[in-house]
């Protein structure tokens, strides 16, 4: 627990010193979501139906873009090797790192999402569903993405490779996240989708740190 909080503090300090990185991902999220109305036309009815899905796809891409930051810098300067050599179980500090990554790259997306939702004509209740679905879904994106980031450490073309590895695995989160907003719009209700997202989050939280630990060991040795 101590190790997790120490690592969390370190990661957050590092992120605060390099605020540009955090903002870049956030603006990427905003820009991608703003491109869709320009592409499909300003028809409000259509945009309202698409809104949830577009915000979710943009969140997926933004989360993927931020994965490079997760381990790359620590790998380059040798910190990662030192972390692996510490007696602290890898699963503990990996959980801390992923948590920090989510706080830095996931939470800003959740806070920005209502602004984008309003642009797509979503109402108050629907915005609340959008935010809760992102609250449950974005940690999963960080967790699953960490596996891809760990496996592609130091590889040529790592960024594109991560997208190929990770995006297919993101599909369930996208389906249930966008489905929750859809359910709120159509009046079918979004509890089922949110419960499934919560289930995926619990499963991912239990399993992925172990996979990330194995992946890091493979990449470092």
């Amino acid at each position: 627990m101590n190790a997790i909080s120490a690592l969390l503090r370190r990661e957050l300090t590092l992120a605060m010193r390099r605020r540009g990185d955090v903002l870049t991902v956030l603006f990427f999220f905003v820009i991608v979501a703003s491109l869709f109305p320009l592409g499909v036309g300003p028809e409000p009815k259509l945009l309202r139906l698409m809104g949830g899905g577009v915000v979710w796809v943009a969140a997926l891409l933004a989360a993927m873009l931020s994965l490079g930051r997760l381990f790359a810098a620590d790998y380059a300067d040798g910190t990662l090797e030192q972390l692996i050599l510490t007696p602290t179980p890898p699963v503990a500090w990996i959980t801390g790192k992923i948590l920090a990554h989510w706080l830095v790259s996931g939470v800003p997306l959740i806070l920005m999402a209502p602004v984008l939702g309003i642009q797509f004509g979503l109402s108050g209740a629907e915005l609340a569903v959008l935010m809760s679905s992102l609250l449950l879904g974005t940690p999963v994106l960080s967790l699953i993405g960490a596996i891809g980031a760990a496996l592609t450490l130091g590889l040529r073309g790592g960024g594109v490779l991560v997208s190929l590895l990770v995006l297919p695995l993101y599909i369930p989160v996208l389906i249930f996240g966008a489905g929750a907003v859809d359910g709120a719009i159509s009046g079918l209700g979004s509890e089922a989708h949110l419960s499934l997202l919560g289930g995926i989050l619990i499963l991912a939280f239990m399993l992925t740190p172990w996979a990330v630990a194995a992946a890091l060991r493979i990449s470092i040795e």
């Binding site: 596996i147 496996l151 297919p168 389906i175 489905g179 399993l207 992946a215 493979i218």
Partner: peptide
Amino acid sequence: DRAGALIALVGVVNVPIIYFSVKWWNTLH
């Protein structure tokens, strides 16, 4: 070898989740 093996295992755990999510997505849409 090892990286590929790990991603294959992660994939095989995910295949049922993906299958059912796509199935429900289709029937709900």
